[in-house]
Amino acid sequence: MATAAHAHEHPPPANASSRVDARLLGIYIFIASEVMLFGSFFTAYFFARVVVQNETWPPEGFELPVYLALVNTIILVTSSFTMHWALQSIKRNYRAGLVAGLTLTFLLGLTFLLIQIREYTRIGFAPNDLAFGSTFYGLTGLHGAHVFVGLNLLAYALIRAVRGHYGPKEHEHLGVEIPGIYWHFVDVMWIVVYVTVYVV
């Protein structure tokens, strides 16, 4: 439908009425919404654990691999630092650092996901074992899904990085910064999930 007639039609540039970049603001608002989604799952968890009085939690016969999960937590936290490094590198226009950082982050995230799947298959109870099982798989699964999305974003950023996109200027590396923000969110969220589900 691209008729040459309109080929060079452009809108008047919009007035920037805020110092915040639209795309950054966008991702922050989106994350706010994501937090609420986790909120609903935590609410369900709260009902199953607190409102319904259980004599023990986890109910007997159930136990969680707290230490394995701790290892996983450490992996994910590390990945946040590598992500940060990637961003800093491109800001200093150090491309190798960018690619290396993204690759590392991606691999760490992938490891996390694989370990979690392994945990699922070995954990010995299923989502349909009591509300405990449901809420456990609910929260960890929701988070796993977010890790998966995050990995996709990282992959895209990586592809572009390898193909030589991005640069040191503010608007040139948003494509790295934004997946980064999302990744940090996924990371922080995991710490909350870990503490509530495994530790407390």
């Binding site: 919404s33 994501e34 609420m36 989604l37 909120g39 609903s40 799952f41 609410t43 369900a44 199953a48 319904v52 259980n54 109910p59 989502p127 349909n128 074992d129 009591l130 509300a131 405990f132 099982g133 449901s134 809420t135 798989y137 609910g138």
Partner: peptide, 26 residues
């Protein structure tokens, strides 16, 4: 997101037989 959550729970309860709301299972 809260209605999204609530409907996810029912979906799971139906399709995966989870027990978010089944009193017999806590």
């Amino acid at each position: 997101p809260f209605i999204a959550g609530s409907q996810f729970f029912i979906l799971f309860d139906r399709v995966l037989h989870t027990n978010f709301f089944d009193f017999a299972e806590g």
